[in-house]
């Protein structure tokens, strides 16, 4: 159990990014009535932005 928790903790930045940041970006854009650039759908844009931030945090060990 502890091992499993440790494994999940190790991947937490990515889990947080795809599980939380992506919908926050999507719903934030919808609330502000912002259109994503380059003809992307809101979902794809949020996936790209949130996923990139999460990947960076996962690799660097910090968000900022």
């Amino acid at each position: 159990m502890e091992k499993l928790l440790g494994l999940i903790m190790a991947g937490l930045p990515l889990i947080f990014a795809f599980g939380f940041l992506v919908p926050v970006i999507m719903q934030g854009m919808a609330a502000m009535e912002w259109q994503p650039p380059f003809g992307l759908s809101t979902f794809n844009f949020a996936l790209f932005l949130g996923g990139s931030l999460g990947l960076l945090a996962q690799v660097r060990g910090r968000w900022i």
Partner: peptide, 23 residues
């Protein structure tokens, strides 16, 4: 660890349930 993961899990559930901004 359970508290930390539980927090993230609740945030994710709320977010994908349509309450991302509230969370």
């Amino acid at each position: 660890l359970f508290y930390k993961l539980g927090h993230v899990a609740i945030l994710c559930l709320l977010a994908w349930g349509g309450f991302a901004l509230e969370a």
